[in-house]
Nucleic acid binder design. Sequence first.
DNA 1: GACTGCTACCTTGCTATGCAAGGTACCTTG
DNA 2: CAAGGTACCTTGCATAGCAAGGTAGCAGTC
Lengths: 114, 114
Amino acid sequence: MSVTTDAQLLAQLRRGVIEHCVLALLDRGPRYGFDLVRALAAVEGLGTSEGTIYPLLSRLRKDGLLETSWQPSDQGPPRRYYELTAQGRTALDVFHRHWRSFRAAVDEVLEGDK
Amino acid sequence: MSVTTDAQLLAQLRRGVIEHCVLALLDRGPRYGFDLVRALAAVEGLGTSEGTIYPLLSRLRKDGLLETSWQPSDQGPPRRYYELTAQGRTALDVFHRHWRSFRAAVDEVLEGDK
DNA sequence: GACTGCTACCTTGCTATGCAAGGTACCTTG
DNA sequence: CAAGGTACCTTGCATAGCAAGGTAGCAGTC
C-alpha cells in the first residue's frame, strides 16, 4: 500500500500552487467558480474538483484577496463571480517571485550533477 | 488571521517536492538523515526540519524506495545511511517527467497573457 | 405537471503530510 | 561528571485537497 501513485503525486504538487493559479486566472478578468474548475481542468496537471475550488475561493474571499458578486445566468442558476482585490494582486506578485526561485531550487536539486 | 505568510507559502510549495528532492540527493550517493536536513537547508526555499525528514525517510523505506544501513561515525552516534533501490530510481524518473510538465503548466497559467 | 439532465453552488469527512516541540542516546572536551 | 554537539525518532497539531453527497435553478420532453 501507499507507494505514491501518479494521481497522488500530482495532487501533492498542486498543493500551494492551485491557490495562486486561481489568482492568476482571475487576474485576467472576473470568473465564477464552476468555470474556474473547467479552466484548470483544461491545463494538464492542474485539474481539480469543486470540493477543492469552493472552499479555496471562500478562504481567499475571507482573507480579502477576492471580492464577489452574484449575477444571473442566461441558462441555469445564478453565478457567483470572483475578482481580484488590490491585496489579491499583491499576493499574486509575491507568489510569482517565490515561484520563480522555488522552481530554480528544485531544478537545481533534480538536475544536480547529471 | 490566516492570509498566507511567506513561510506558509513556501511550506505548501515544498509539499510533494521534498520527497523527490530527497530521492534526487540520494541518487548521487548514500547519505544519512541529519545530513540530508543540512543539504536541503542549503538550498533556498527547500529548508526543512528533522520532524519532516525522518518520517519521510521511514515512509520511503517502507515503500521500498530506500534501503538503509547503520554505520559508525568518527565523532558522534552511529548514522543510518539511506540509498536508492531500483524502485527508488524509477520513482525519481517518474517524478522528473511529472515535474517538467507540471512546471510548464504552472508557468503557462502564471505568465498567461502578460 | 412530472421527469431528466445539466449547470451551479456548497459542505462533510477522510487523509496525507509538514513541522514545532520534545525525548533519547552517543561521543568528546574540559 | 557536566555540557554541548551530533544524530536518531515520536507526538500532536494544523492545513488543505478531494471524493462524495446535498440543494437548487433552469430547459426540454413526454
